[in-house]
Each structure stands twice: as C-alpha cells, then as structure tokens.
C-alpha cells in the first residue's frame, strides 16, 4: 500500500473514533457514562445512509445523522439524569434498541453506494484526496479542550462531574449542565456515525459501526479524560484497523480473524496499562453517580 493512501485511510478511520471519543470524554467529565454511544452511532449511520441515498445529497445525510444522534443521546441522558435510572443498564438498553432499530429502518438500503462528499483534491489539486469535512472535524478535540478548560460552561461541566453537590449549592443546575454535555456528545456521535457510512465505508451494511461506539467509550479512560489525548488513542486504533489490510498482503500468513481482533485485544491491554495512581486522580469523582439533592 502506498504511504499516502495509508495515511489518508488512517485519517478517515480515525475521525469517527476521534469524534465519538471526544464526546465521551466530555460527557464523562460531566459525570455521565454514555454506554448508549454504539446505539446512537449506528442509528445515526443508518439514518444518514437512508437520507443520503434517497435524496442523493450527502450533506442532508450528515444533518440527519446529527439530529438522530442528538435525539438518541438525549433520550439516554434523560433516563439517568431525569429518572435516576442506572446509567450502565440504561446505556446498554439504548444500545441494544439502537442496533435493532437501525437494521430494521435500513432494510433494503444494503449495498447501495452512498453519494460521496467532494474531496479536498477537487477544491485544490495539490491537497490530499481527503474529504472536505475532515480538516474541520480533526480540530474538534481542540475545540472541546478549549470548551472544557477555558469557558464557563466547561467549568460547570467539570464541577458537576467532580462534585455535583457543591456545584448545586453554588447555583449550577446539575441536570441542565449534564444535559448540555450529553447533547454535545450526541451531536458528535451523530457526526461520527454519519461519517462512517458517508466517508469511511461509503455504504450501509448491518452493524457498520463494528463496535466503534464501545471503543470510543474505552478511549475516555485511555486518554485520561483529556480531549487532546484522544488524538493518540484514535490514531492508534485507526492505525491498527488499517494495518489489518496491509498485513493481509504480507507473505507471512497470519489468520485474518486474529488481525481483526487485535484492536479489541490491544484496547484491553491499553486499559490495563493506563491503570495507575495518576489515573485514579483524574477520574471525574462523580462519574456514574446519580445526583440527588439531599
């Protein structure tokens, strides 16, 4: 595989993980573990594919993906935030429902090539053959980092994730702040799902996200809940994903299935490696704890 092809495919594979991972970091900094991300991503992917195929316009596909990702994530967020339901079970319920729903709504759209968005090369011939959206999407972790560390909203988000009782007594509405964080996460998940079908794979297949939603959840502890460190994890796992195809061309016969499972195995290893006292200090202290006013 040529180097430039390798790099562009790594970037297109990294962007979904980058977006979803950053979203997860944000929402976990607000104290909510979003395990519904796989469901939100695949539903967004399905609706993006359907919209893009029926209208012939990929931008409408992105819009549909964002809306669906947002709605599904808010649906999830309302269960633990509003009704104090267990976050883990609620997340898994919405992921299961999302997986089932996506394959039902997108029945009959399998195999169609989706209309693609223009590449940077069409705009200016010297640019790499990446899609025009990727430069914007690549800076999103930076933006979220800025949001978390430099803005008032970021301060509120960190406060409700670390000590919701103190934040509440200072007049921060814990529920609203967490919902805002969840809706930003939802938008990013929707973008990520839409990007997978419209750019990375360019067609809808059942289960197209292939566990990227779960990988995104794992990226949060892996990057010490720091948006900028999501770059490292996302590119690492995207690299592993693309290397599978490179390795298949090697003369040494490695079972394809072993290559396919490396990202998951490396992820478990990564979760072990990042376990340390430093990590313990960085965990949002109210992560996974429902807020009740006492």
């Amino acid at each position: 595989m040529r180097l430039d092809v390798f790099i562009t495919s790594v970037i297109t594979a990294a962007i979904p993980l980058l977006l979803a991972g950053t979203g997860e970091v944000l929402v976990e900094r607000a104290g909510v573990i979003n395990l519904a991300s796989e469901g939100a991503m695949i539903l967004a992917a399905a609706s993006a594919a359907i919209t893009a195929i029926t209208t012939g316009n990929p931008w409408l596909g992105f819009a549909a993906g964002i809306v669906v990702g947002l709605v599904w994530t808010l649906f999830f967020a309302l269960l633990p935030i509003g009704l104090k339901v267990n976050q883990i079970i609620a997340g898994i319920a919405l992921s299961i429902a999302g997986l089932g729903l996506s394959s039902l709504i997108a029945r009959g759209y399998e195999g169609y090539t989706v209309p693609s968005i223009p590449s940077l090369k069409d705009v200016l011939p010297i640019l790499p053959p990446l899609d025009v959206l990727s430069p914007i999407l690549l800076v999103i972790p930076l933006l979220i980092h800025w949001l978390l560390s430099r803005t008032r909203l970021g301060l509120y988000i960190r406060a409700v994730g670390d000590n919701p009782i103190a934040a509440d007594s200072f007049g921060v509405d814990v529920a609203v702040t967490r919902l805002v964080a969840a809706s930003i996460d939802g938008i990013l998940l929707g973008l990520s799902g839409a990007y997978i079908v419209l750019v990375t794979t360019q067609r809808w297949v059942e289960g197209v996200t292939g566990g990227r939603g779960w990988i995104a959840v794992a990226l949060a502890p892996f990057s010490y809940w720091e948006p900028l460190l999501v770059y490292v994890g996302a590119f690492l796992f995207a690299g592993l994903e693309v290397l599978q195809y490179v390795a298949q061309a090697l003369p040494v016969r490695v079972p394809r299935e072993l290559l396919l499972s490396t990202p998951y195995l490396v992820l478990i290893l990564a979760l072990v490696v990042v376990r340390s006292r430093r990590l313990q200090k960085r965990v949002p202290r109210a992560l996974g704890v429902e807020f009740r006013r006492v």
């Binding site: 339901v85 079970i89 319920a93 992921s95 429902a97 997986l99 089932g100 394959s103």
Partner: peptide, 14 residues
C-alpha cells in the same frame, strides 16, 4: 427481537 428487548428494558427501567 433486539428492538423489543431494548424497548422493554427502557420501559421497565422508567
């Protein structure tokens, strides 16, 4: 089946 499981879970939890 997946959809029903997910919906029932959500309904039950709520």
């Amino acid at each position: 089946g997946f959809l029903a499981e997910g919906l029932l879970l959500i309904a039950h939890l709520s």
